[in-house]
Nucleic acid binder design. Structure first.
Lengths: 158, 158
DNA sequence: TTGACTTGGTTGCCATGGCATATATCTTAG
DNA sequence: CTAAGATATATGCCATGGCAACCAAGTCAA
């Protein structure tokens, strides 16, 4: 029981495998629904929601939030701009960067997509999360996330 | 509190966000360690471990396990074969498919990588999972995974 | 002020995965 | 047995992300 005892009673490799499998399948399922109803995928929905809730963010802020590279964040912003869902505005305080904000179209889209997102997520997870373990697990994931972010774990290079 | 009550006391969108952020950062961090020490990434480690533990699996079995498309699984197998970590053997019962198995090199690699994997994962998560919430959360994710797999949620097309 | 360093972002190249298509094999109704 | 359909995989095209090279702009010390 060497493996189990390292995690204080939890089989960490099994925990990780379950975490990844849940994430993959939920992400895929949400992609399907969001694509068919709104023409976007989950990563775009999350970017739009972040920009709605944090207007004036920079490309680097998107990268940090989602733990993706700066390059990927920049390209993602390009795509949102190309669809006229977001735009870059010159940052008056630092001309190297731009401040991102949603357009009216983008705002309407994210609000509509959020309904689909929440509905689908509820459909897929509410039964399992309904019991008393739900909030405990949610709290633990929030703590794990906070720890990883505090220690800057798993940030890509570029 | 409409959102929270749908999940029986859990904010499902927040739960999902935390789940995805944890998965991304852990995956990235494990990628770094595995790449520098063994020249593989986490997805390859997981494939190798699966083949070690389920010898004679088919490409379709890999796809189902990881909720990726058949095409992606086929290409992944190609890459493992190219490195001589695995090989395809003709399936005597069905000549459309091959049975995959590790080579001796592949077996040595996965065993070595597993030590790095477990060690890194422990380093990153053991502190958070140590408390009483750890097993509760692990159990909940296992149940969620089982539900998603039972209902075939989030399987790609090809 | 200026030159070295840092920081924010963009872009090109490569690897990987999704999806559609193409093949080769099974399976099965008749 | 045969033809139609189902199944397992392979492969091509496209989208996306990592990483590195590059450029523009800010910071700082002397």
């Amino acid at each position: 029981m060497a493996t189990k005892s390292s995690g204080g009673g939890t089989d960490l490799p099994a925990f990780f495998a379950d975490l990844v499998r849940c994430e993959t399948r939920l992400y895929n399922a949400l992609n399907d629904r969001l694509r068919e109803r709104h023409g976007i995928v989950t990563s775009q929905f999350e970017s739009l929601r972040f920009l709605r809730d944090h207007p004036g963010s920079r490309v680097a802020d998107l990268a940090a939030e989602f733990a993706i590279g700066i390059g990927a964040a920049s390209k993602g912003a390009d795509r949102l701009e190309k669809q006229a869902w977001a735009r870059r505005r010159t940052n008056p305080a630092d001309r190297r960067s731009s401040l991102l904000e949603l357009t009216d179209d983008g705002l309407r889209l994210v609000d509509a997509a959020e309904a689909t997102f929440t509905e689908t997520l509820t459909e897929l997870t509410a039964a399992t999360l309904r019991g008393p373990a739900g909030p405990v697990a949610a709290q633990l994931l929030a703590e794990l996330r906070a720890t990883l972010e505090r220690d800057r774990i798993g940030l890509p290079t570029g």
